[in-house]
Design a binder for these strands. Structure first.
Length: 281
DNA sequence: CACGTCACCTGCGTGC
DNA sequence: TGCACGCAGGTGACGT
C-alpha cells in the first residue's frame, strides 16, 4: 500500500485511532518481537530491541512515503515499499497462545496491551530507529502538498532536468511521495505524455502538472488511498483510476483504448489521444 | 552524471 | 489440478 495517500491514510489512522478507536500516541513500547530480521534496516535487531524498549510514542506523521514516529528519544521510521502495512490490533491471545499472522514481520507490544503490527508479504519494507531521522530522510525532495512547494518552484525544478516526466516524478529525491499509480494518474490529468523531457514544459504546462499532481494526491487521500489486489485496506481510489491498470479499456474522455508501455521497468499507462508526446505552446 | 539492468521477495491471475 | 509465466503500489546496488 505504498504511495503518499496510502501512507498518509495509515499515519492518520495510527495517530487518530480512526477505525480502531485507539491511537498509538502516548503509548509506551514495552517490547518488540522481530520475526524477520531484515525488516530492521538499522540498528541491529538486538540493539533495536534494547533501545526502543520503554520509549513512548509522541507523534505519528509522514514524510514522502515514510511513516515517521517520534519517540521519547529517537525516531522510528517505516517504509512499506510494495506490500507493507502497519496497523494496531488488540491483544491477540487465544488459549494462552499469541496468534501471529502469516505476514507479520515485526510486532510492537504497547503498554495498554495493544499490538502495533508491521506486516509485509514481500519483505521489501524496512524499519529504522534513528537519533536523527534526517540521516534517512535528508535526500528527499519537497513534499508535494506543502506550502513550500509552489508552481514556480516546480517549474524551476523541471527546467533543471531533461529526464522523461515519468521517471523524474517517481524519483523521490526530486519530489517525495509519488509512485507508479499516482504518477500515471497525474500525467493523464495534466494531459502530458510520460516520456516528455521535463525541461520542455513551459510555465503553463508546469502549472498544469503541479495542479494535477496535488489534486490527484488529495483525491487519493480523500478516498483513503487505493486498495488493489489482496492488500485491501478500505481505500476507494482504485475505483476512480483513469488510466492505471486500464490497458485496452477505453479512455473516459475520448474513447481511445488506454495503452501500456514500460518505462524504467515500470508499467506506464496513458491515453495516446489525450496525452501527446509533443507540446503545443 | 545519466541511464539501464538486476536483485530483493511472495502471491495472484492466466493459460496450457 | 499442476505448473510455468507474467505481473505487482519500491528502491538500492551495480554496470556501461
Amino acid at each position: 500500500m505504498p504511495e503518499l495517500p496510502e501512507v498518509e491514510t495509515i499515519a492518520r489512522s495510527l495517530s487518530q485511532g480512526k477505525g480502531t478507536g485507539f491511537s498509538v500516541v502516548g503509548q509506551k513500547i514495552e517490547g518488540v518481537s522481530i520475526l524477520w530480521e531484515r525488516s530492521i534496516a538499522t540498528p541491529s535487531a538486538v540493539k533495536f530491541k534494547q533501545r526502543i524498549q520503554g520509549q513512548t510514542i509522541r507523534e505519528v506523521g509522514r514524510r514522502g512515503k515514510y511513516i515517521v514516529m517520534s519517540l521519547s528519544s529517537d525516531t522510528l521510521l517505516f517504509h512499506l515499499r510494495m506490500s507493507g502495512d502497519l496497523h494496531t490490533k488488540s491483544a491477540a491471545v487465544q488459549d494462552g497462545e499469541e496468534t501471529v499472522g502469516k505476514h507479520d514481520r515485526v510486532i510492537f507490544f504497547l503498554h495498554n496491551g495493544q499490538r502495533l503490527i508491521f506486516e509485509d508479504a514481500r519483505k521489501f519494507g524496512r524499519i529504522w530507529l534513528l537519533a536523527n531521522p534526517q540521516d534517512e530522510l535528508g535526500d528527499l525532495g519537497p513534499e508535494p502538498l506543502s506550502e513550500a512547494f509552489t508552481a514556480d518552484r516546480f517549474h524551476n525544478m523541471l527546467q533543471s532536468s531533461k529526464r522523461p516526466l515519468k521517471p523524474l516524478l517517481m524519483d523521490q529525491t526530486f519530489l517525495a511521495g509519488l509512485g507508479n499509480i499516482y504518477t500515471d494518474e497525474a500525467l493523464f490529468k495534466a494531459k502530458l505524455h510520460p516520456l516528455i523531457p521535463a525541461n520542455q514544459l513551459g510555465v503553463e504546462q508546469a502549472a498544469t502538472l503541479f495542479k494535477a499532481i496535488r489534486e490527484t494526491l488529495l483525491e487519493g487521500i480523500r478516498r483513503n488511498g487505493a486498495s488493489i489486489d489482496w492488500a485491501y485496506r478500505g481505500g476507494d481510489f482504485q475505483n476512480h483510476f483513469f488510466v492505471y491498470g486500464r490497458k485496452g479499456d477505453v479512455c473516459f474522455i475520448c474513447g481511445t483504448p488506454i495503452e501500456r508501455i514500460v518505462v524504467g521497468q515500470r508499467g506506464t499507462h496513458f491515453c495516446p489521444t489525450c496525452q501527446k508526446t509533443t507540446i503545443e505552446r
